[in-house]
Design a protein around this nucleic acid. Structure first.
Lengths: 333, 333
DNA sequence: CGTTTTTGTGCTAACGTTCGCTCAATTTAG
DNA sequence: CTAAATTGAGCGAACGTTAGCACAAAAACG
């Protein structure tokens, strides 16, 4: 690789002069700058960022940790964040955690080792103490889920949303409402609370046998639906409270040829083009992915610029609202 | 940030000893190694990768350039690639190009500047000379599209696929077949060739007024369908030859309440869960995204390990087959 | 017991870039 | 016409890590 040294030799200049010429230092003559630039282009010189970082400069790298980049929500976050930070000359280092705390730890170590300017992460269910310690060394922002011992967080109004969805079903007269979700993540617990609260407020007892708790993935969604419908007295409505669970549930309902909403009403989670086309159209909670990602990106740049570390005293917690989109998959009993 | 120097001072050791202890050098006593490790953990030491890179080591970074990470295909590539390379201790630096050659150039410059171990890219339609020159400095692999002056490429059998799709429609008796695609990318041109060849071989003249060429995005797909259906003698079948165009077309057909396949047969491109649920089910060309991404990742690691540069003499060109999935959106005339 | 080998550690240079300091040459001011 | 200011460029140190060389102490060998 070509270095400034090569350029300096070629022009019989010192490395410092070449360095200054390339960074447009005011005390270098126009003529020298032009000659240096010309030779640099000719030799195909590309600055070594590692050296710059070592001198104490910024790596201009932003770490992004997501469980799975194929998810529409996470890829939207990645896209928007990338757009945001690139406008300021930053770049994205993408790490995929699989929601595994050990993978997460290793990835965070890598990012800190690369001296990233900051980290945006969707934290795993229960990050290691070490992970948290490392995160506290750099500006960072949590998205979606919230670990109290970490800093700023951009989340969604999970409780309100599930409350709305449950109330929608209650107002349609449903009393046997099944709940499919998780208690693994902070969001899962908040959503479940919302469900219980809505039921309690409506004076509707929660049938524990209609509560399916498990990992928020496609497979569990499908299995949960199958189990629920196989019960002696099946639910009249179901709430699927994560994107993947909703997808699995929809596939299962289609496969089992269940009439929606006649046999079962369903409220899904997240938005994708498939939801408008699935069956009678899926009633769903729309995620404010784009807005959330953008505001998160902007805040993040702010955090990096002000060298704001681990949400020092009062972490900034932003809550974006979700909206219930009513389609054909929910009807009165 | 804590450096080995801090650890050395704390233990009254030299930096070299600490450095060797941390890299598990054989000539360091077990006792010293343990003490060093302990203090390192206590102080929260994280190695500075920049320094390591400067010493001539690898950055263990792999650059990935995609037009848009929200696309299912590209995010699948990102996911699989990440899995592949992380198994070998590499990490992904994600860059989004928007298919813009200037953005692309800037991103490649950044990656080379960060001294990435290699680059995987979906090249833009017409990369700058400078971009190509920089790419030639590092091991790199093209995905999907192919720029002849660059190296190895992992693509799909675009011509064969469109040939199959067109023949499927021809066999169903269609003669007025519309084509919606692009001539911007190498893939677009190859696909169009496949269409023309299939028609020619079947002795079916291509009606140029039924050929809609434009950017491969959702908007164009919708507009193209609207234009085609507004013609005095509209097509009986249409071939949409990119993922986004297919999505736009499907949305437009739903919006216009066109009876598929009675009024119009359609063959789409790419696969997504929505396609099985859209209308009567979309007949479509399945992309071998997962396989392609995985084999690309493996080859890439090979290229990095063997320091294989710009496809030196004979670039490796892998062609994965696509398969036509027949669903309800195509029927005989 | 002396010699060779092994073991454990320190010194120092190097990677590529940046930046403070120095200094000569040139220009401007008095 | 001399003194001061400005311009243009070089020297050398520093960033954190690694690795070759050196060297003392300990161990193994004859």
């Amino acid at each position: 690789m070509i270095t400034i040294k090569h350029i300096a030799e070629r022009l019989n200049l010192s490395v410092s002069t070449v360095g200054r010429a390339l960074t447009d230092h005011p005390r270098i003559s126009r003529e020298t700058k032009d000659r240096v630039r010309e030779v640099a282009d000719e030799l195909g010189y590309v600055a070594n960022r590692a050296a710059r970082v070592m001198r104490g400069g910024s790596s201009h790298l932003v770490g992004l940790l997501v469980p799975d980049i194929r998810s529409t929500f996470y890829s939207m976050v990645a896209q928007m964040l990338s757009k945001c930070v690139e406008a300021d000359g930053f770049h994205l280092a993408l790490s995929i955690t699989d929601d595994d705390r050990d993978t997460e730890m290793q990835q965070v170590r890598e990012l800190v080792s690369a001296r990233v300017a900051g980290i945006v992460l969707i934290p795993s269910a229960n990050p290691r103490r070490e992970t948290i310690a490392m995160l506290r060394m750099v500006p960072h922002v949590q998205v979606l889920r919230r670990i109290p011992s970490l800093g700023d967080c951009f989340g969604m109004d999970d409780e309100r949303a599930i409350l709305d969805a449950t109330n929608h079903l209650l107002q349609l007269g449903h009393r046997r409402i099944a709940y499919v979700g998780d208690l693994i993540f902070s969001t899962g617990r908040i959503r479940f609370d919302g469900f219980r609260r809505a039921c309690a407020e409506a004076g509707c007892a929660v049938d524990e046998s209609l509560v399916e708790l498990g990992p928020p993935n496609e497979q569990f969604g499908g299995e949960a639906i199958a189990r629920l419908l196989a019960k002696p007295s099946p639910p009249t409505a179901v709430l699927t409270t994560s994107v993947q669970v909703t997808l699995g549930a929809a596939q299962q309902l289609t496969a089992m040829k269940i009439a929606v909403p006649q046999q079962l009403s369903i409220v899904g989670f997240g938005d994708g083009s498939w939801q408008q086309w699935w069956g009678p159209g899926l009633t769903t909670l729309r995620l404010p992915a784009e807005e959330l990602a953008t505001s998160c990106g902007l805040w993040f740049l702010h955090a990096v610029r002000t060298e704001r570390l681990a949400g020092e005293k009062d972490p900034h917690v932003a809550i974006s609202p979700m909206t219930l989109i009513k389609r054909g998959s929910t009807a009165s009993v």
